[in-house]
Design a protein around this nucleic acid. Sequence first.
DNA 1: TAAGAACGTGCGTTATAATGAACAAAAGAT
DNA 2: ATCTTTTGTTCATTATAACGCACGTTCTTA
Lengths: 112, 112
Amino acid sequence: MIGARVRQFRTARGLTMSELADRAGVAKSYLSAIERDLQTNPSIQFIEKIANVLDVDINALLKDEAATNSSDETAALDEEWQKLIAEAMESGVSKEEFKDFLEYNKWKLKQK
Amino acid sequence: MIGARVRQFRTARGLTMSELADRAGVAKSYLSAIERDLQTNPSIQFIEKIANVLDVDINALLKDEAATNSSDETAALDEEWQKLIAEAMESGVSKEEFKDFLEYNKWKLKQK
DNA sequence: TAAGAACGTGCGTTATAATGAACAAAAGAT
DNA sequence: ATCTTTTGTTCATTATAACGCACGTTCTTA
């Protein structure tokens, strides 16, 4: 279904529904209905708008999930992790700080 | 416009409007309006139907804006970040620990 | 802990996508 | 040449896509 894909890309970009709807110039209430598959037949202009903001090809939203993420790297990351990544990047956490955090945790796990 | 492309593919297949509309299961009156650009915002299900009969990819009918992709640096998932995250997941770092790390860093940045 | 903002959803309304006739013009057949 | 069938169009009607606003909840900020 198309709703799942829209939500997937949206959360991956760390965007809220209000934000996406605002940027795309569509009603957030309708976007909500689309993501929950309460409505499943949007127009091409609607799809173009949100695809434009999400910066993805229109096919990425229309494509049946069969070919979409068979062996896609980003698909390996589950949804919650993607949110965390987006949040991390936006908050200005440096990669170095994160690396330190990683090493510290590895060390901590070893102590058990 | 989309109408020109539909007509182009249809005539190329030697199909009449009545025939295409019939096979696709849509109203020929509406198909007529689409081809003459009296209506320019069909639904994805409509396009899928006729694209299916015409045996063309959906893009072939929408391709007017094929090159609208200029990947956003800030929003897109940074490649190096992805590797770090993958490493984090494999090393068994829990989401909770990562969340705590994020909050701590946000707080730290605020202190300046 | 209270106030305020931002989040997503529910609902009534509007705009328009999509339909099913019936129609005139053109093509094809007898 | 008239009759018949097929073509694409017009028009009134129905279905639903899309909207704006208000509401309850969940984060923030003080």
